[in-house]
Nucleic acid binder design. Sequence first.
DNA 1: CTGAAATATGAATAGTGATTCATGTCTCAT
DNA 2: ATGAGACATGAATCACTATTCATATTTCAG
Lengths: 210, 210
Amino acid sequence: MAKPARKTGGTANASEDTSQPKTARGEATRKAILTAAERVIGARGFNDASIGHITSEAGVAQGTFYIYFKSKDEVFHELVLEMGRLVRRELSQATRDIPNRLDAEKAGLTAFLEFVRAHPDLYRIVQEALFVDQDAYNAYYQAFSEGYRKGLEAAVEAGHIRPGDADTRAWALMGISRSLGERLVIWGDTTPIDEIVATVHDMIANGLKP
Amino acid sequence: MAKPARKTGGTANASEDTSQPKTARGEATRKAILTAAERVIGARGFNDASIGHITSEAGVAQGTFYIYFKSKDEVFHELVLEMGRLVRRELSQATRDIPNRLDAEKAGLTAFLEFVRAHPDLYRIVQEALFVDQDAYNAYYQAFSEGYRKGLEAAVEAGHIRPGDADTRAWALMGISRSLGERLVIWGDTTPIDEIVATVHDMIANGLKP
DNA sequence: CTGAAATATGAATAGTGATTCATGTCTCAT
DNA sequence: ATGAGACATGAATCACTATTCATATTTCAG
């Protein structure tokens, strides 16, 4: 079948029923396939990345793929979830112990950009999720915007920042991160991350007014 | 052929050699196909939008498509270019006659968000171009970031805004626009555009400091 | 050791959809 | 009016690839 049933568009959430490996060998193979999928899909995009490409990159036969994943869509889904988990962990570590919101903003941006530079394939995959697996895409950004909004609301309460609609601000700040991440990954920008962050943080903290 | 030769990845720029219509009838048909493609591709994504879907939406036979476009990739390419032209025109009109950069920023953001809300399909298409037609994607954002950067550099010269790396700022500001546009189009946000702009402009102009 | 479960293989199946083409029908300059 | 393009049609082609399956091979608990 060249085009399997589409994912349900709504909020339905397929169970995580991929048969989990029961053996060390299986574990290793599954991870190899996942890593290969990350590289191949990240580089060629979802549609040009065939199962054959992925399994060949992983060094296994084509059929092996279906021992660990129910479909091509499923690996993709899992890669998006993985990116979400990794980024969230990275950010919460980076901003843990930073009580002031503006400082946390700075540290978070730095961590995000560093992560993105280290994982360009995952970055692209998340962006492509909008067209391949919108549920995963939504979940990814919903989690972020929600967390962001709460953080900003708390910061306003605490008097760390001036008042203003937290949701809109959250999206604006996410947009800054994404855009600068894209400049690194897609455009090969080589500006040192510290410099980028300094410029942006100055703008976020002080605005553009002379 | 299910999968035609890929676009050259580099900077190569295919000539605009689609046979232009020579008749009023042809002109109308071509436009009908282009409009249908915008709707169908915008709604279903490039890969799920078949030529059959597009021609059926346009009310013509499948073969007619190839009288006006060399390939599916080509319509897509043209749609991305169209979006670029339209947005640039919109923005330059909206900011013409606004001498102060910060005011122009505000007017530009408003115009952009209004445009995006009015053309959700084109918005999605530009985003998908990253995975379908990277050359077009690059051209689109290069044009924007360049213009933005120059504007910011001039504004710093003129003392309208505080000093800071113009390129990084340009990407950050573009990111804000994109992100808020996405919230409208993808997430169905219904916040009045004026309110969004007020919040964001306050942040851009004054920053977040208390 | 041993056999049942787990893992691996790669050829075969089959859905799909972009593109072509042989065959009409319309348009408009002369 | 009229014929040479221009335009339109839609069935047929055919390359592509996701998924399945019958058949090994490997692992490991007992």
